[in-house]
């Protein structure tokens, strides 16, 4: 019995340190890996391990949502966008910052990290997580009531935000199609050259060229 208690008391710090180290290493790899597809995969793994941190923090639904949205949605989005950009996959074409700039950025980031970490250690947080006083609840009913009943307006706002971003995204993606001149070419034939200032008498060769270009598009 004694042994079990000791194990359970040591278990949480060990688990936290393990998961935190994995998260940090994966975040560093997601930023620094040469191949950008692997970087996206490492970001997905990092999001999954952040979900483990949320489980340590007694937030099961947030952990599930982290996996569903970050790992399932955002990482898929990033990977798919990388697949759409063949230039981005070629690591030899990627522009990297100069070493001096990189060192400078690392220095600034390390300074911010160390200062805020020191502040987090020194600052007298109200360490009031006393289980005798505070009752933690991971009851999903209360969370659902908070989200849907007390603050339902926020959920509707989220729906509006998502619809707005979706309409903007689809409009941006299809804008090119709307401005494409293929329909005009179909309607007016060869005359739909962009430079209609000079009305050259078109020879047969140009017709052939135009046709082949249309086929390429």
């Amino acid at each position: 019995m004694q042994y079990t208690d000791w194990f359970l008391s040591i278990f949480e710090p060990v688990e936290f340190l393990l998961v935190a180290a994995i998260v940090l290493v994966l975040a560093y790899l997601a930023l620094e890996h040469k191949e950008i597809v692997y970087a996206a995969f490492f970001f997905g793994f990092m999001a999954s391990f952040v979900a483990a941190i949320f489980l340590l923090l007694e937030a099961p639904f947030v952990a599930g949502m982290q996996i569903a949205v970050y790992t399932g949605g955002i990482t898929a989005l990033i990977i798919f966008a990388v697949l759409l950009l063949p230039r981005a996959q070629d690591s030899s074409l990627e522009l990297f910052a100069t070493p001096r700039k990189r060192q400078l950025g690392f220095l600034i980031a390390a300074l911010v990290m160390i200062l805020s970490g020191l502040l987090a250690f020194i600052f007298p947080w109200a360490e009031s997580f006393d289980d005798a006083v505070v009752t933690i609840s991971n009851n999903l009913n209360d969370l659902a009531m908070w989200l849907w009943s007390y603050n339902g307006v926020y959920v509707q706002l989220i729906a509006l935000i998502m619809v707005t971003s979706m309409v903007g995204a689809v409009a941006l993606l299809k804008m090119d199609k709307a401005e494409q001149l293929s329909e005009i070419r179909g309607e007016f034939g060869i005359e739909a050259k962009p430079d209609f200032e000079e009305a050259e008498p078109s020879s047969n060769e140009e017709v052939a060229d135009e046709d082949s270009e249309e086929g390429d598009d």
Binding site: E12, P13, F16, A20, V23, L24, A27, Y28, L31, I53, L56, L57, G105, F106, I108, A109, A110, V112, M113, S116, G117, A120, F121, F123, W125, E127, F129
Partner: peptide, 20 residues
């Protein structure tokens, strides 16, 4: 119980990495 500052240090390190 893991103290709060551990989580905050992890969060700040992630923020610093992302900012880098």
């Amino acid at each position: 119980m893991v103290p709060l500052s551990w989580y905050l240090v992890l969060a700040f390190m992630l923020i610093g990495l992302g900012g880098y």
